[in-house]
């Protein structure tokens, strides 16, 4: 595993526009796929899901830098193992490169980025502007989030915006897309065709009402769901069976979130400091009992992926491996959740 974890170099990534490729999920950088009936967006991520393939998404941590190569280097770690890349929007209320820009950079290479929008920092005017900009940059997927509170991050003195909440944000994106107008009613000549996602946390109280909340989000227009970290599989299975019973898996694609814990100390820190993360004691016991806690954390993550794949109603998995991005490819490979399928990679294209 260690050798595979070495950072790959992307210096040779050329920007020559290649010939258009006729394979199912490929396209020219910065351009959209042809329209397809029954599809909302013209991006690759939606095609993978609608094709019935088990999708893998991974989270990219936007750099604290202006060097775009840092974005490309991180994205290249996922090449050939990930279908879509989430660019976080000020995760944990900490300052990083903007998610719109990270997605624009990724989109130019040809990746399928998922632009996260947090309601914490922008009001409805800024968000609508960003959505149009994202559309112009061929960004096809957006994830509507409430966002962690400012008090969780490195600028606790900042003003919290929360002009919208995640459900209002989904409603807004759907309105822009389907009605072709701003909230004010003013016409948008070429509205962005966004595939809309949102998150759900099945593990925090009131647990029994979370399913109602999910239903509300899907009714508002969510097309896919990426969940918070899932370490408690029995709880996730129970949640998913209720979701299937309600018929919600027919209306949206589900990608439960998994993560790799670096050590039991990290796990303890996450449990105490990151809002809404539920880690059961069995995970702590496994980590503490292991010789190499980091490797054990990755092994747990690999097993979680395999378990997630077996759950009814699940369409994919979302990997959040903060500061362990270089190991995502190996974990996906070890878990064999892709079953031989190779997601689009720029290396095949150039």
């Amino acid at each position: 595993m260690d050798q595979a974890c070495k950072r790959k170099q992307t210096d040779n990534l050329t920007m020559i526009i290649p010939e258009i490729n006729n394979q199912a999920y490929t396209y020219r950088p910065g351009e959209l796929l042809p329209e397809l009936e029954g599809h909302i967006s013209r991006g690759r991520f939606e095609r993978v899901l609608r094709n019935g393939d088990f999708a893998v998404t991974a989270e990219l941590a936007p750099p604290d830098s202006t060097d775009r190569n840092e974005v490309f280097e991180q994205a290249a770690l996922f090449d050939g193992f990930v279908d879509a890349i989430n660019a976080t929007d000020g995760s944990g209320a900490n300052c990083h490169m903007s998610s719109v820009v990270v997605c624009a950079l990724l989109s130019y290479i040809g990746y399928s980025p998922i632009m996260q929008i947090s309601c914490r920092d922008k009001n409805r005017i800024a968000i609508q502007g960003d959505l149009l900009g994202a559309g112009a940059l061929s960004i096809c997927n957006v994830l509507a989030l409430t966002g962690d509170d400012v008090s969780a991050g490195d600028h606790p003195e900042a003003k919290r915006v929360f002009d919208l909440d995640s459900i209002s944000l989904i409603t807004l994106i759907k309105k822009i897309r389907d009605e072709g107008s701003f909230l004010s009613g003013r016409t948008i000549t070429n509205p962005p065709q966004m595939f809309v996602g949102t998150s759900i946390n099945p593990f925090v109280p009131p647990v029994e009402s979370r399913i109602l909340q999910l239903e509300k989000k899907i009714n508002a227009g969510a097309n896919f769901i990426q969940t918070q970290y899932c370490f408690d599989m029995p709880m996730l299975k129970d949640f998913m069976s209720k979701t299937v019973d309600k018929g919600l898996t027919e209306k949206a694609f589900f990608l439960p979130g998994v993560g790799a814990l670096a050590s039991s100390r990290t796990a303890r820190w996450i449990k105490n400091n990151v809002p809404g993360v539920h880690i059961p004691d069995s995970i702590f016991q496994r980590l503490e009992g292991a010789e190499d806690q980091k490797k054990e954390g990755q092994k747990i993550c690999t097993e979680l992926m395999q378990e997630v794949k077996e759950i009814e109603g699940v369409s994919g998995v979302h990997i959040m491996a903060y500061k362990q991005e270089e190991c995502v490819a190996q974990m996906v490979k070890d878990s064999d959740v892709l079953g031989g399928r190779k997601p689009w990679s720029p290396k095949d294209e150039y």
Binding site: D149, D165, N201, P206, K216
Partner: peptide, 21 residues
């Protein structure tokens, strides 16, 4: 609600059911 959410709780509710903020 410190985030003035109008459609349900955020994902940060504490295990005792108290507010994240």
């Amino acid at each position: 609600c410190p985030k003035t959410l109008r459609n349900g709780p955020c994902g940060g509710v504490r295990e005792d059911g108290n507010c994240e903020v």
